[in-house]
């Protein structure tokens, strides 16, 4: 189908975008890469009166590194993330994850800000933000708000962003020496939204985790920072410990049935991802036990 009629305004600065958004209120939608908004318009799921195109704001498309922090502008495209040496050096989890987001032609347009604002629970980047303990920076008529990623995602397609606010940047702590990461997802076809996925970061001392952040996606209404990680921290990981963590994980997931996978299958895949993650991070193939369905 074709998009319904709308008016179009181009914002050339962040201030202009904020002004336009406060002026039109909930009659307007921000247009970034358009890779989620355009399908919704073409399918006539949305009919905003105005689109505010933030594409021309060059300041929003950049990656900078300062002392301990990596700052990623909201309009940084998926393809930019993938080829950035700064991302590869300081947030390699994002480099791995973004290769699983859609297809090359979509990655050339889609942006990180759009992906986080859209908040599809099956999306890779929101779960990475949760695992990396990122801060989402939003700007509105009343100034700036800095929201921890774990609080930013509220539900299916729902975030803490208020009408009139613009997501401007994401701050990710630079990865410290010795920190390891894991990314994997199950999809029906390459480039599809996941049936279950896991983005994780860990610090390891000897044979034990000192810190372990497990960001699961596509297994609930929003990305989940699994508290099951507590069972795995500060002690040698045995088969029994891992089984305990898998059971705890099962309790905190709330997956839904859809045309891609049943809730039960998603739970199974999530437990399997947890086992693979621990095997990979600790280099312990002896822990690769069969996950029961």
């Amino acid at each position: 189908m074709k998009a319904p009629a709308f008016n179009y305004a181009r914002a050339s600065s962040v201030q202009e975008a904020i002004d336009l958004l406060s002026h039109y209120g909930d009659r307007a939608k921000v247009l970034s890469g358009g890779q989620s908004l355009m399908p919704a318009l073409n399918l006539r799921l949305l009919a905003p009166e105005w689109l505010i195109d933030i594409g021309p704001i060059v300041d929003l498309r950049r990656i900078s590194v300062e002392s301990g922090l990596l700052t990623i502008g909201a309009s940084t495209r998926h393809a930019d993330l993938h080829r950035s040496p700064d991302i590869a050096a300081h947030a390699p989890l994002l480099k791995d994850a973004v290769a699983h987001v859609a297809h090359p032609a979509i990655r050339n347009r889609g942006t990180i800000g759009g992906s986080l604002a859209h908040a599809d629970p099956a999306s890779e980047l929101p779960a990475c933000m949760v695992a990396l303990d990122a801060t989402i920076v939003v700007l509105g008529p009343d100034g700036e708000r800095r929201i921890p990623a774990v609080d930013f995602f509220v539900g299916i397609y729902e975030t803490q962003l208020l009408p009139g606010e613009l997501l401007v940047a994401i701050e990710v702590p630079k990865r410290a020496a010795g920190v390891r990461h894991f990314f994997s997802e199950h999809v029906r076809r390459s480039g599809d939204y996941a049936m279950a996925g896991l983005a994780a970061e860990a610090e390891i001392d000897g044979d034990a985790f000192v810190r372990l952040r497990l960001g699961f996606f596509a297994v609930g209404e929003r990305p989940i920072l699994a508290t099951a990680a507590r069972h795995l921290i500060g002690r040698p990981v045995t088969e029994a410990v891992l089984a305990q963590a898998c059971a705890a994980l099962d309790d905190e997931l709330a997956p839904q049935d859809d045309h891609q996978a049943t809730a039960g299958m998603r739970r199974y895949l999530a437990r399997q991802l947890l086992v693979e993650c621990i095997v990979s991070l600790l280099g312990r193939s002896d822990l690769r036990t069969k996950v029961v369905a």
């Binding site: 179009y8 890779q35 355009m38 393809a79 347009r109």
Partner: peptide, 18 residues
């Protein structure tokens, strides 16, 4: 699929005005 500024993109997901 077409090329815009050298990159392949979905032309159904870009407005002509963009």
């Amino acid at each position: 699929t077409v090329r815009v500024n050298g990159d392949i993109v979905r032309s159904c997901l870009i407005l002509a005005i963009q």
